[in-house]
Amino acid sequence: MDIDDLLAEVSVDSISQETRDLQELTRSWVAERVAPEILPWPSDLMERVLDRIRRQIELVEDQTGNMDPKTNFKLIVIQTELERFKFLVRSFLRARLKKIDAHPLHILARHAASATDLLPLLSPAEHQYLTSHQALLTSHYASSFLSQFPASLQRMDDTTGGISMVDKPDEDAAVFVRVLRDVGEVAVEGTDKRLEMKRGDVWVVRWSTMRGWVASGDLELI
């Protein structure tokens, strides 16, 4: 192992868990804002981040009213940073909710399929929201008109006639990615394209081709 590698290990290890979590949180947020699909819920990361936020809020509540100017400025710094984190988490949650609302049946199916994966697609709260929201809408359609339809047409998820009523997002939409680790040659399905993806590259490629490598952490969305 050469000097550079040793130095790299040492410097990376000396970066605090908090900073790593902020890197991951930022990366997850950007990914959710630009990817056409909803990505797996980063449950461990969110647990740590939310826990830290909660404790920081408690700290500020304890200290507010303490008019010592030194404490006061420290609080200003802490509160300023707290708002930044709250924004990150808030925007992240709502970006996901937007996708959940847009393609609920498709996402429900994906979530069920993810039950055996390392990371389920939705958080328990999101799953609850999705199923409740769907139930509300279904009941609303039923009471507004659907209950008066012939029985064969009352389903919300039918795919007869070759036209699916289950909407899904455009998985081939183009996205910007940055290569974090060399990936090598990538083929774009249905075309002649072969891309050589090296660390540091920035590419515009269709999402479906990139999905797996984003999941494995070799690429990030930007």
Partner: peptide, 16 residues
């Protein structure tokens, strides 16, 4: 870019 961390460690990117 700085050298890559070994194994499957988190890789940092801008703004980090």
């Amino acid at each position: 870019l700085p050298p890559l961390p070994s194994g499957t460690s988190l890789v940092f990117s801008p703004p980090f």
